[in-house]
């Protein structure tokens, strides 16, 4: 008698929970849970980890980005790393200059437009480095989002000579 009741109680409780649990299964696969990606290893990608850039000149940034559904917005940020604070997301370190005190470091924050509806895009952006900025170690930070709001960040160490 006791045993029967025990089993019955168990059944009632687990059926109730299982019923709730089973409703959810189908939904989770519909939403996009994939992050966009930045390919810095592509042969014409620039800058790369440890690239050198000249002051007073222009260069073309080539950034390969992709997403499984639709890309969002792309953004680059160049800031100094004179204190070696490091946002580098790359494993291999470049040889850094000694720590230096900034006087007129370059701060550049730039949006690069990505056409709507793309899953793969190679962004080309001309960037001019003023002649009067401090040379030294800098970071080149790339941020890409997709339409759903997933963001991937790559930080590269570069040198401005």
């Amino acid at each position: 008698m006791k045993r029967k009741q025990w089993i019955k109680n168990w059944l009632v409780a687990s059926v109730a929970l299982a019923a709730i649990a089973s409703c959810s299964k189908k939904d989770s696969s519909i939403v996009d849970t994939e992050y966009p990606s930045i390919d810095v290893s592509a042969s014409n990608s620039f800058p790369k980890q440890c690239s050198e850039i000249q002051r007073g000149q222009k260069f073309i940034a080539m950034i390969h980005v992709s997403d499984n559904k639709e890309l969002g917005s792309l953004n680059v940020d160049i800031h100094h790393n004179f204190d070696h604070h490091s946002h580098s997301t790359e494993v291999n370190d470049c040889s850094l200059n000694p720590v230096q005190t900034p006087v007129n470091p370059l701060v550049l924050i730039k949006s690069i437009s990505v056409p709507a509806g793309q899953t793969k895009y190679v962004a080309q952006q001309e960037i001019e480095i003023p002649a009067d900025i401090d040379p030294g170690d800098y970071h080149f930070l790339i941020r890409i989002t997709d339409k759903e709001g997933w963001q991937t960040i790559k930080g590269l160490s570069i040198k401005i000579k």
């Binding site: 917005s73 680059v76 949006s111 989002t145 709001g149």
Partner: peptide
């Protein structure tokens, strides 16, 4: 707090 697909350049200093 909804992470959007945009970056902001002035108030957000380039952040998502």
């Amino acid at each position: 707090l909804n992470p959007t697909s945009d970056h902001d350049y002035f108030y957000g200093a380039g952040n998502q």
